[in-house]
Each structure stands twice: as C-alpha cells, then as structure tokens.
C-alpha cells in the first residue's frame, strides 16, 4: 500500500484544504540549511499534524559548518524514534548513536537526472542500482531510500531487489545544486532566505522530442517537473512525497 506525503516548510501550508489521502508530512527542505525549521516551528507543526492525524518526517538539508551545530541541536531535542531524512553524511555521523529511524535522502543517492536521459543509449540509463551501494547504507542503519520521480524507469528490472524500500519524490526533480550561497548570503546573487520564491523558466526548447521538459531555477537549484507516476509501482516503492502542496491536483497516475 502506498503512503502519500507532502513536503512543507511552514505551518500555514497545512491550512491548505485539500489534503485528503495524505497521511504524512515531510517537514523541511534539502538544499538550504538556512531554512531549516526552528524548534518552535517544529513543535507548532507537530501539534497541527497530530490534530490532523498526520505523521511527521523531518527532512534535512546538506549542511555547511556554520549551520551544523544549530541544526544538530534542534534535531537532538526530537524523540529518538523520529523519522529523519539524511542528505548530509555529517549529520548522520552526529545522529547515528541517538536516532535510529534514518532514511537516506535523494541528494545522497546518485542517479542520473538529466532531462535528456530518455534519448540516450541504454548504457546511460539507470546506472545507479548497485547492491553494494544499498547494502553499505543498510549496514549503517538506514531503513529506507529516497529517489526522484525521474522520467525513465526506476529500476533495471533484471537487478531490482525487494529488500530495499524506496520513496519517490515528485514533481520537482532536482538536477543541479549550487552551494556557494551558504555563507549568510554574502556571495550569492540568489538569496535563499527570502520568503518569496524565485522561480524562473530558464529553458524551453521547441524540439520537444529532445527536451521534453522545461527547466526551472529556484533558490540554489535547477529542476524539472515530472507529474506522472507509474501506477504499477513495484512493491518496494511504498511512499510518494509531493514536493509542493499546491501541486497536489496536478499529479497524474498512469
């Protein structure tokens, strides 16, 4: 059975009315440590989630040194059973002895996400599935792996393994990240701390057979959107995370 989740960063996003079918919240973001929720925000959102009978997963970002202590301190106040998505191995190293419900985030699972993937030769497709990789992280204590809803198939069907459990993020597929913003905005033109999102369509090609997706830029990352979910997901993909609550009604099950 598939568990449907939404990613949020602020409490007011939970006021969005149409969240029928959602059973879990992913609280946080992956690319900006400056936007990690405070303890007070986590407490507030946890109360609302409890009232709405929603479970919570804490989504953590890549973390530069200047944010590390504050984020780590906040997370260590949470119960040890809290589900935490790890996108920085430094955070894993800091939490491994206290928190044991850890998920390997999509930034740490290297799969090719170029929008041109579906026009390449087979050898360029899906080269990420390697049991050595997943066994390594299972031995570290991770119990779930998270990937993007890329436009090609998730697994090489000859090599999939049911012992690895996966979640899939959509519609935003993050392809490139630039991290030189994380110095209190001193050197970045794109400010990650502003409340207003900066989303631009930066590329759209008329040759849709080559580039079927538009590319977008937001904060410090490039992404494309893939709204289509394979209806017949494999048994070991049992969680879907909608990256933006306002795009819930655009998801297509095919």
């Amino acid at each position: 059975m598939i568990e449907y989740c939404i990613r949020i960063e602020k409490a007011q996003e939970l006021e969005f009315k149409n969240i029928l079918g959602i059973s879990r919240i992913y609280l946080g973001n992956e690319t900006c440590p400056g936007r990690f929720p405070t303890k007070a925000e986590i407490t507030k959102i946890t109360k609302i989630a409890k009232f709405k009978e929603l479970k919570i997963t804490i989504l953590t970002p890549l973390i530069t040194n200047n944010y590390f202590d504050s984020i780590c301190k906040t997370i260590k106040t949470l119960p040890a059973t809290t589900e935490i998505v790890i996108n920085d191995m430094g955070l894993f190293n800091a939490l491994k002895d206290t928190h044991h419900n850890l998920i390997l985030g999509r930034l740490l699972i290297p799969i090719k996400k170029d929008i041109r993937m579906d026009i390449t030769n087979d050898y360029n497709r899906l080269t990420f599935f390697n049991p050595d990789f997943f066994n390594f992280y299972l031995e570290l204590g991770f119990n779930r792996f998270e990937i993007d809803n890329v436009q090609y198939s998730y697994f090489d069907t000859k090599h999939e393994s049911d012992e690895f459990i996966f979640s899939v993020y959509l519609p935003e597929i993050i392809t490139n990240i630039q991290t030189n913003h994380c110095n209190k905005c001193k050197t970045s033109i794109i400010c990650p701390h502003k409340e207003k999102e900066i989303t631009n369509i930066i590329y759209k090609d008329d040759h849709k057979e080559v580039y079927p997706y538009e590319i977008f830029c937001k904060r410090n990352y490039i992404f494309y959107r893939n709204y289509v979910v394979n209806k017949t997901l494999k048994n070991n993909i049992n969680r879907i995370i909608i990256t933006n609550i306002y795009e819930l009604d655009k998801i297509i099950f095919k």
Binding site: L62, N65, C72, D88, M89, G90, L91, N93
Partner: peptide, 10 residues
Amino acid sequence: HIFNEESIKF
C-alpha cells in the same frame, strides 16, 4: 560534497 567537520569525521 563534504561541507562540515562531521562529514570529514565520517
């Protein structure tokens, strides 16, 4: 992509 001291330790 090591950004912090804990990652170095890992």
